[in-house]
Nucleic acid binder design. Structure first.
Lengths: 205, 205
DNA sequence: ATCTTGAAAACTTTTTTAGTTTCTAAAGTT
DNA sequence: AACTTTAGAAACTAAAAAAGTTTTCAAGAT
């Protein structure tokens, strides 16, 4: 039983870093300093292992999103935290990983897509509604439309081709997108809250 | 002859983006919109193709480095340009690519290592010597030592583990390393040139 | 009308990898 | 001290995948 459950996060990191194809079971065992046999005692096959590693990733994000509801004073503070978490998580989703996922683990790929299209969009929609109630986001905008726009923004960031010719740091692009987006949905008072909260939380780490 | 030589840069991009293992010959043909047959008419096997794609990368860098000698007013201007080019090139060297290279194309991996350890270090050493003649870098420092230090700095940036826990944008880390390094080797007048030249060339794109 | 070209796809061969088994050494147990 | 368990190392097998080849077919050129 030398493969403690904490090792699953190490495995996840290796998958994120090198992709699912390059990270073979032999290589994985070598990196973990254990034998393949030990891995197979905990996970019946590679598919199960990949699901465990990447499913945990989704669950973590789900948990962090749930925690935000309590901790956030207003919709804009929550938006900033959501964005920061989401951005950080997305940086792990390298082109290779997404490519391998789509090709070799389509059911997991579809689960990721579903998570983004349904759960994230849902969370975002409720966030917009809350912000409208708080007078921070304009009443005229439709939360359903805006939440789907947000999904498109994350798609932009995940696509390695779209902004690559600009050679900008991805963080810059992200901040630009956020500025335009927030400017587009906030009321004047909401925009003020955005600017002050942003400064307090130093979004640029 | 539908596989124009310009396509080799597209192939290179695909290798960079997805690694050498995930990018199979079938997938490559699909992405290029041609048949495997056509690829094999130009490149006898995958190894040759990988060498062509990645060897071109080195040659380009070699060319850019050579061009710098003419274009740069002083050693510090050249250093800034060198660093910018090197940093941009290095961003393409993803963990997956380096991993696949090391595992499946060891002779090419060694060529890359040699290029860094010999050619880059040599270029750097001559740059330091020039800077000393221009009174920008301190006489006491040994160009041979400093150039090897610089190699270690690039190693730091290529290793995905070292700074990952900081969650800083890689560009920030790079600028920090540069600041410390330059501060360590410049004379007072050199430091002035560094600060003014840096501002003129806007290193932060 | 004939020839060439290259994509599409079927096909073969080779390599790689997943998954299993065997062996051995070390640690703990009785 | 003999015995049992545990896990790594490594050899092994079976299956999958990828490299590389060949055939077919359609479109454009001669």
């Amino acid at each position: 039983m030398s493969l403690a459950p904490t090792h699953i996060s190490t495995i996840r990191e290796l998958f994120f870093r090198y992709g699912l194809k390059s990270m073979t079971m032999d290589e994985l065992a070598r990196q973990l300093g254990c034998s393949k046999k030990t891995i197979y005692e905990h996970y019946s096959d590679k598919k199960v292992l990949v699901h465990a590693a990447l499913g945990g990733f989704l669950n973590e994000h789900r948990g962090e999103m749930a925690a935000l509801d309590q901790n956030s004073d207003n919709a804009i503070a929550k938006l900033i935290r959501m964005a920061a978490i989401g951005f950080q998580k997305m940086r792990n989703l390298t082109p290779t990983l997404l490519f391998d996922l789509q090709k070799s683990y389509p059911e997991l790929w579809m689960e990721l897509e579903r998570y983004r299209k349904e759960e994230i969009v849902g969370i975002f929609k409720r966030l917009i509604e809350r912000g409208q109630q708080e007078g921070l986001f304009r009443q005229e905008i439709d939360p359903s439309v805006v939440s789907i726009m947000h999904l498109q923004h994350t798609n932009l960031l995940l696509d390695p081709v779209v902004f690559s010719h600009l050679n900008h740091p991805i963080a810059n692009i992200f901040h630009n997108i956020m500025e335009v987006f927030v400017g587009g949905i906030t009321t004047p008072s909401g925009l003020e809250v955005w600017n002050t909260t942003k400064a307090q939380m130093n979004l640029h780490p």
